[in-house]
Amino acid sequence: MNIVVTVKQTFDTEAKIVLDGKGSIDGSGVNLVINPYDEFAIEEALKLKEKFGGDVTVVSVGGERVTEAIRTALAMGCDKAVRIDDPALANADEWAVAEILAKAVSKLPCDIILSGRIAVDDGSSQVAVRLADALGVPSVSSILKLDIEGDAATVTREIDGGTELIEVKLPAVFTAQKGLNEPRLPSMKGIMGAKKKEIAVLSLADVGVGAGDVTAKMGVPKFSLPSPRKGGKVIPGEAPDAARELAKLLREEAKVI
């Protein structure tokens, strides 16, 4: 069973986001990690590989720094990787990334495509689903359990207030929700072995996409940070008086009771 995992490198979830004067995110000096939801996808792929054999290929779109995330995936046990890097990708939107991934993935032998259900940076949850659409295969999002038998998958996915059991034929795309598994740490041997594994770096031309074919349909002119939290209010005085004052403020000022 051959599996493709699409991986995105994101800011460390504890990173402090800083904007420059133009409303763009200043990523310098920020610690980058594998998108935490993609780690669930990697772990699931590795578990399937351990059960059924085959290769796990990591596919990622992005510049040189993405290699760090890819190496971590390889250290965890993925077999090889493809990184698609091209100057034309500077302003790629979700549609463009999905189109490029589809071209790249269609060249790989693959029964299952796994991804995180959301990237913790832009949180659009679009790429994996668009990828499935571009490949013409079914997709199941936010999965909590994945069982494979032959060319069929039985999947439990999270829905609001419960779960849904879905049966689907492979090949298919699945996006991983927290709870699917507990991602392993790379072992020392895994880390040492990761640099011996192949990372193919492909341009748009290499995957068969013309730069003009993936001009972004969507632009992001500006980011903004939430307004800083205002300081709390301390109500002085003895407890019974303070409680009365608090109740009054909650009703009249905050209007929550």
Binding site: R71, M188, A194
Partner: peptide, 14 residues
């Protein structure tokens, strides 16, 4: 090296 950085992260996470 890259390996050392990855090892430090792994051992610290563990």
């Amino acid at each position: 090296t890259e390996d050392h950085i990855m090892m430090r992260k792994m051992v610290r996470d563990f």
